[in-house]
Design a protein around this nucleic acid. Structure first.
Lengths: 232, 232
DNA sequence: TGAATGTCGATTGTCGACAATCGACAGACG
DNA sequence: CGTCTGTCGATTGTCGACAATCGACATTCA
């Protein structure tokens, strides 16, 4: 097989269903489609330029991921988020990250720590530049990496769903505008604890990190009705 | 609204899709459909007397649950189980049960312990009667209850999937024929530890309980090729 | 008047037919 | 003879049309 002179990109090869999933999921977790919003199959199909078959399959997947809710013969809506949902989301998230953390420390691979530190550096740079979007992106990357480094595929699959819903919560309650560099620096002690293999400390710090965000969001949720337009 | 004289049962009201899911899922976790087995949409549709639309949606759900594997334009097969899969399955299972256990002990509700003990009694009766099937059923009920008592819906959803796949592994490696009453009695120390709220002990016992089963299965898996017919 | 029942529009659930894509094999070309 | 290319059957992916079911409203009858 002769090598081609220039490296070409792989062309987009996903099925229609997968692309629909991506589009809708992104719209939901970005908060563009708000909780309670009705998702009418024919309307969506027309708007996206596809038929109902792949669209229905996409909605089914999102339903199983917990992003939408379907009542038989009634319709599909973007799932409403209760305070309990958020609390469960964050407690479960903590569980998954702690598990990964334990595996990581047990493996004791310096490469792991380096990778986490890279994401921290990127966060810090973004924070100093005042780029919230980029900061959040690297924040996600940090936690995603933590999970990926476990090498546990079942854990990763579970994380995927949880992580998306966390993104959604943050998007709907955006801009609590804390000091950006402080957010970034929050991650240092965790990395350090991993580096010196202090399991208990790392676990404790991680849970504090997660819980503080979760509690804050849950309280905010209570304060204002919810993220939906409440179009009743 | 006048009360009817006799209590009538709710009639089966599931969509075709849901019933297909139930049938296929049960066949897979019971080991009737073996790993590697090809699932051809038209054949299944004909056999079940439905069209491909709801069947495809059912396969999609099973795919996301990790029970089958679909390659675009190639087909769907019952997912193969590697040794790694089994190890992940059991470690993840341990994680979920430990989490539930912690919540349970934190709540400290005597009713919880009573419920677990009921399942244990049923297990013991089944064991003494030599009814393996019934024993396994109540064993599952015990662990299902443990999860349910947490009242954590996200945990329950996650458990659902894991639990099914564990059932599948056991079905494919059935009859290791250990002493039945001993299996049942295994659960007593755990219940006792919960009753006296000894968290560490309960967690340790639970993990031993789960890990011993998981390791045993993983080893057996290695010994014999795998559960599939290897029809190559 | 008001509770039970019939009707209607909207939306989802299901179906059969057609299009797209795959791996395997046959054939052309050097 | 080996490699690449074109064709073929099988299977999945997508489509438009029809059937089933829902809540809301209108209607009936005491």
């Amino acid at each position: 097989m002769a090598q081609l002179p220039a490296q070409l990109h792989q062309i987009e090869n996903k099925s229609r269903r997968e692309r629909i999933i991506d589009v809708l999921r992104e719209a939901i977790v970005a908060g563009e489609l708000k909780p309670g919003q009705a998702l009418i199959e024919m309307d969506l199909a027309t708007q996206l330029g596809v038929s109902r078959a792949p669209l229905r399959e996409a909605l089914l997947v999102l339903d199983r991921e917990g992003l939408v809710e379907t009542l038989p013969y009634r319709g599909t809506i973007v799932r409403n988020l209760s305070r309990t949902d958020i609390e469960e989301l964050y407690s479960f998230r903590g569980l998954l990250e702690e598990f990964s953390l334990r595996q990581l420390i047990a493996r004791d691979n310096p490469e792991d720590v380096a990778q986490l530190r890279n994401h921290f550096d990127a966060m810090l740079t973004a924070a100093q530049a005042g780029d919230v979007r980029l900061l959040n992106q690297h924040d996600r990357a940090f936690h995603d990496t933590l999970i990926e480094l476990s090498g546990h595929s079942l854990l990763q699959a579970s994380w995927q769903t949880v992580s998306l819903r966390v993104r959604q919560v943050m998007a709907l309650r955006n801009r609590q505008n804390r000091d950006l560099t402080r957010v970034a620096y929050n991650h240092i002690p965790i990395i350090d604890a991993i580096a010196i293999r202090d399991l208990d400390k790392a676990v404790r710090l991680l849970h504090e990190h997660i819980a503080s965000a979760g509690d804050l969001l849950a309280e905010l949720w209570e304060a204002t009705p919810n993220g939906a337009e409440q179009s009743s």
